[in-house]
Structures are given as structure tokens and as C-alpha cells.
Amino acid sequence: MELKYRIVPDVNHYTCIVDGLCRAGKLREAYETICLMPIEPDDCTWDVLLNGCRIHGNNIELAEIAAEHLDIEHFGYQVLLSNIYADGSRWNKKVRARESMKEYGLLGEAGLSL
């Protein structure tokens, strides 16, 4: 890309590569790509890996690594991580994740339908 088109890849290009690897189920390769990026990965890059862990095999180890790099107060990331724990039968960790959401005030009132 750099040699042929003289385009220097930015974080969005690398995130697309990580997304493609995650969609193919190659989570370890996606993580290695993030580690080898010459620029700092952003939240979107880590979110793609976290979501890939949810979709393909619930790789809890990689999901926790990705979650460490994300904003802990973001509701969506916490729910995703909580669901990964539940799917992996890690009930203690799921409970802790839900309690963490309560501490940050991320859990709202339950919805009601009339």
C-alpha cells in the first residue's frame, strides 16, 4: 500500500485487517496484528477484537485483554464482556462484571410494558 499507492496505513486500515481476521475466526492472529501495529490502536480496534471473541468461541482470555484497553464505564463493553462470561459458564466473573456496572451507575431501571 505504501510502496504502490504511497498511502501510509492509519489506525482505520489496521482495524479493518483486525476485523477481517476476527470475522474469519482467527482471533489469535487478530490480537498479534494489534500488538504489531506501528501506531496506537484505538477503542474501535479493541472493540472489534472483543466482539470477535463473542462471536467465535468466546475466547475469554483475549476478551479480557481487549476489555482492559477499553473504557470501563462504557455500557456496551461491559454488557458484551458479561455475556462472554455467561456463555463460557464463568458465572462468578459475570456477577462481578454486572456489579461493576452497578458501581458505575450503568444499569438503569428495568423496562416496563403496559
Rank of each mutant, 00 (worst) to 15 (best):
K4D: 09
R98T: 15
K94D: 09
C53T: 00
E109S: 13
D10I: 07
D10P: 04
T33R: 01
C35Q: 13
I17E: 05
G20C: 04
A67M: 08
P41S: 11
H56L: 01
R54Q: 13
P38C: 00
R23E: 08
I72Y: 06
L114Q: 01
A67F: 13
V18R: 02
A63D: 13
G57A: 02
G52S: 06
Y77T: 07
E109Q: 07
L70C: 07
N83F: 06
G108I: 10
I17F: 09
I65T: 08
G52Q: 04
G88H: 01
G108L: 12
L80Q: 12
V8I: 13
L106V: 05
G76D: 13
L80Y: 07
V11F: 00
N58C: 05
L62S: 04
M1R: 01
H13P: 08
G88S: 12
L114Y: 02
A30S: 09
I7Y: 01
D47S: 14
P9T: 10
D10V: 10
L107V: 08
P38Q: 00
A86R: 00
N12Y: 03
N92R: 05
I84G: 03
G108Q: 05
L3W: 07
R6L: 15
G52F: 04
K4C: 10
A86T: 06
R28G: 10
V95P: 01
R6T: 15
K94H: 07
W46V: 14
S113E: 10
G25M: 00
I34G: 08
W46R: 06
D87I: 09
T33D: 06
G20P: 03
I17G: 02
S100I: 00
R28T: 15
D43N: 15
L114R: 02
N51P: 15
E73Y: 09
A63G: 07
R98M: 12
A24W: 00
D71T: 04
L21R: 01
V18K: 02
R54V: 10
A86Y: 02
L3C: 09
I55Y: 03
I60S: 07
L81P: 14
P38T: 01
S113M: 11
V79K: 14
H56I: 01
L107M: 12
S89Q: 08
A110H: 04
K4I: 13
